[in-house]
Amino acid sequence: MTRKTNEIIAVALIVLSTIGTVIGVFAVEKFRRGRIYTVELIARQPKYGNWYPKKFTVPYGKETRILIRNIETVSHGFAIPDLNVAAKEIKAGEVVVVKFTPDKKGTFPFMCTVWCSDEHLHMTGEITVE
């Protein structure tokens, strides 16, 4: 190997292990989400930002995946009583996936089901099925 190729290989390794890794991670995640209709839902106490997004829409009759990421430091829960969907407990830092096929059209409330703070009862949002 000449000196030149050595340098090129070394630079390539560095780029691969840094920028390549970052791009790879995002690409994998994009592919993973692309296969089923996915909504990402972030769970936080009302004080630190509440549900995000607070309102979202999913298609009627199609398999849907809600990826709930608790990016906070206390447990939360998730439920859409009208659609019979629930995730018992989502611990801090955990990610929970709920899969369901909406069989009713309309707008329904969803809420946190674990006592997470004094404003726990305000941790609610709305899901619309069309």
Binding site: E72, A92, G93
Partner: peptide
């Protein structure tokens, strides 16, 4: 990357 994505959340996960 995990540090940035993890933000101000809990460290133990």
């Amino acid at each position: 990357l995990a540090g940035i994505l993890g933000g101000w959340g809990a460290g133990n996960y």
